[in-house]
Amino acid sequence: MKISLFIPCFIDACYPQVGISMVKVLERLGHQVDYPEDFTCCGQPAFNSGYWDEARAVAEKVLAMYRNAEIIVGVSGSCGAMMMTFYKELFHSTPLEAEAKAHAAKVWEFSDFLVTKLGVTDVGAKFPAKVTFHDGCHGLREVGLKKQPRALLAKVQGLELVEMDAAESCCGFGGTFSVKFPMISTAMGEVKCDSALKTSADYIVSCDSSCLMHIQGLADRQKKPLRTMHLAEVLAKQ
């Protein structure tokens, strides 16, 4: 199966190791991966801020870029949701509506792809640590990620998963929300950090680096002993 990757802009720029980890895991499983180097961003920041015309201008390029892709796998639940769910809304009643739908049908989030599409849960990873899993909202509610990442974590050698209270509660990031209403966003992040701390886990793991960026940024500022790691990074450990 030929897999086209999408690497969200902030992963490219801030967390390249997350993308690299995904490549490693997919190749370890014997798949050929391809990456359209011109891919930058799915357009979500503009879409979520109400700038739909601008979002469409970016998303149109994305549709064109992946037009011939067989299957598209990305390392973010949120950007995945943008393409799977919100593109349909963004292109509703436009000439590209059908293409947006066809595109959506080809997009997979990484953990969902492994478990649901490939039927793989053991990727041969080894990571002796106690972790807790944060369900990123978009991954959870738009993509339906719940069992998949947990099934993968369960097969990681040496790893212990402890569930936190309100694992499904938003971390408070929310894109531009985090800078438009920083006080609310921060309070939500504090609630999340507190429930993660209670588990005394070594790491908070999630399918979304954007949530983790928020949680880590807050924990660092407040000197809370919390470390975050993307699921792909965990799965790449050997």
Binding site: D12, C14, Y15, P16, G19, K180, P182, G217, L218, D220
Partner: peptide, 17 residues
């Protein structure tokens, strides 16, 4: 708006690209 309550993530020298 971000840094008043959170640390900003560092941009990587070597990006995924």
């Amino acid at each position: 708006a971000w840094t008043q309550s959170r640390e900003a993530p560092p941009l990587a020298l070597k990006t995924f690209k």
